[in-house]
């Protein structure tokens, strides 16, 4: 039931946004000139496509992020049973977080939070 509601809301917004974007283009009788398609670079024109093998300067940070994101997955069920499990749950998650924190410290020393 709740999911149906969510899906309906999702589709309504999605369709609404699409319609708002598409309607004016039908009334617009101006042709899109080639010179209008040029991306903005302060008046200059690019020679090449911008789609490139982009140098993501923070790539090593994203690896650390994955570790935390996985941990997040364990935390959802953990949060629900936390009170019934008591101190044991706290200790377990504490250890887990402590290990991950060592990961942060190591990464920090290696300088992965800077733009490489």
């Amino acid at each position: 039931m709740a999911l149906t509601g969510l899906v309906i809301i999702f589709i309504t917004f999605f369709a609404g946004a699409l319609i708002v974007q598409k309607l004016p283009t039908r009334a617009d009788h101006h042709q899109l000139a080639e010179s209008q398609k040029v991306p903005f670079l302060g008046g200059s024109s690019p020679n090449t496509h911008a789609w490139q093998r982009y140098h993501i300067r923070y790539y090593s940070m994203t690896l650390l992020f994955i570790a935390f994101e996985m941990e997040m997955m364990f935390m959802y069920p953990w949060a629900v049973v936390y009170v019934t499990e008591g101190v044991k749950a706290l200790a377990e998650m504490g250890m887990f977080l402590a290990i991950l924190t060592v990961g942060i410290l190591y990464g920090w020393r290696e300088g992965i939070f800077r733009w490489q």
């Binding site: 670079l41 302060g42 008046g43 200059s44 024109s45 690019p46 020679n47 090449t48 496509h49 911008a50 789609w51 490139q52 093998r53 982009y54 140098h55 490489q116």
Partner: peptide
């Protein structure tokens, strides 16, 4: 348009990835 310039080693970590050369302004 041409595809971006072929890779050259980076000045910081030496990874060879595309460079994007353009005029700005």
């Amino acid at each position: 348009r041409m595809m971006p310039m072929p890779p050259t080693p980076d000045i910081r970590d030496g990874l060879a990835l595309d460079v994007y050369r353009t005029q700005v302004g």
